[in-house]
Amino acid sequence: MKFTIKLPTDLKEMSVEALLINEWLVPKKQRHFLRTKRHLFINGDIANFSHQVEGDDQITVIFDSEDFPAKSLSFGDQILGRSLILYEDEHLVIANKPDNMKTHGNDANEIALQNHVAAACNQTVYVVHRLDFETSGAVLFAKNPFVLPILDHMLRERQIHRTYQALCAGQVKQDKMIIDQPIGTDRHDKKRRVVVSRGGQRAVTHVLVLKRLATETLVQCQLETGRTHQIRVHLSSLDHAILGDAVYRGRKASRLMLHAKHLELRHPFTQEIIRVTATSESFERIMKKIVTD
């Protein structure tokens, strides 16, 4: 793998080592290979780690199979994968996952969204975050192992912003609210999660009412944390279970009415703001039917 990256114009001057460690989060092992193999260049010239870089410099890095061992992934449907891609560049790809499709398979032979996206990109892609099987919407993948730890770090530091829409039962009275309730595993069913008074993981969901209907409310949810089933558990705990959510006793619907509508991040190398909007025909169809009934 060979990448040439033009540094953002407003980047402050720093050493190559600082760039690799603090800005790009390159793991220690890979930094060692870059140093010993002299596989790092500034504006076309071989550089060492003490050299200074600044805005608009072009940094080239080369990684071989020893640096990042190749990982194989079974390819899915190339045409389907291409139809689902919302954004793609040299380092990352964002796809619109349909409802009732896994983000990634549980074994090498299982085909999921990751495999379809890989077929469309004609290369292995790496999962940065996942959506539940029943949930639709925007999912981020890394296109190489170089950028993967950077995106993982951005996700942990809440620098990747995910906005969901959910149609839940009843009329949510508050226009805005913050649900700050820890979540733990249901001791009666390990597949379910519940709000707990102690011993759970911190979980915070920001909720904004978008539209009140006769017996439902369309809400927007933003995650401050990313716990399993977080939005589903939090809304259900307030007696506003999401329609179609059989696990959390939501009213019957032909699909889970939870959709990852927007995904936004600052590109780790170019600093460009990337914001995508994912649509779902099944979600909109059910919404339209409920509004007109």
Rank of each mutant, 00 (worst) to 15 (best):
M1V: 07
K2Y: 04
F3P: 03
T4Q: 08
T4N: 08
L7W: 04
P8A: 11
D10M: 12
L11I: 12
L11K: 08
K12M: 03
V16Q: 02
E17W: 00
L19M: 03
L20R: 00
I21W: 06
N22C: 02
N22E: 14
E23V: 12
W24E: 05
L25S: 12
L25P: 02
P27T: 03
K29G: 00
L34R: 01
R35P: 00
T36I: 15
F41Q: 13
F41H: 14
I42G: 09
I46C: 04
A47M: 01
N48S: 10
G55S: 03
D57R: 09
Q58M: 12
I59F: 01
V61D: 00
I62R: 15
F63A: 07
E66A: 11
P69E: 11
A70P: 03
K71V: 09
S72V: 13
F75R: 11
Q78E: 15
I79K: 10
L86D: 05
E88A: 07
D89C: 06
D89E: 07
V93W: 01
K97A: 04
K97T: 03
D99M: 13
K102G: 09
T103P: 07
T103D: 12
T103Q: 12
T103S: 13
G105E: 08
G105M: 11
N109G: 11
H116C: 02
A119S: 14
T124A: 06
Y126M: 09
L131R: 04
D132F: 05
F133H: 14
T135I: 07
G137I: 08
V139W: 07
V139F: 07
L140P: 03
A142W: 03
K143S: 01
N144P: 09
F146A: 10
V147R: 05
P149D: 10
I150D: 06
I150V: 08
D152C: 02
H153Q: 12
E157V: 00
R158T: 09
R158G: 06
Q159R: 15
I160D: 11
H161N: 11
T163C: 03
V172F: 05
I178N: 07
I179K: 02
I179W: 02
Q181V: 10
P182N: 13
P182R: 14
I183D: 01
I183Q: 06
D186S: 14
K191L: 15
K191S: 08
K191R: 13
V196F: 07
G200L: 08
G200Y: 02
H206G: 00
H206Y: 02
V207N: 04
V207H: 00
L208N: 12
V209R: 03
K211Y: 04
K211R: 14
R212G: 09
T215K: 15
T215N: 15
T215G: 10
E216T: 13
G226T: 05
T228F: 01
H234W: 02
S236F: 06
D239R: 15
D239H: 15
Y248R: 10
R249H: 15
G250R: 10
R255F: 09
L256Q: 11
L258V: 09
K261T: 15
K261S: 10
E264N: 07
L265Y: 02
H267G: 02
H267M: 00
F269M: 09
Q271V: 01
E272R: 04
I273H: 12
S280D: 14
E281P: 04
S282W: 03
F283Y: 15
F283N: 06
E284A: 13
E284M: 14
K288E: 13
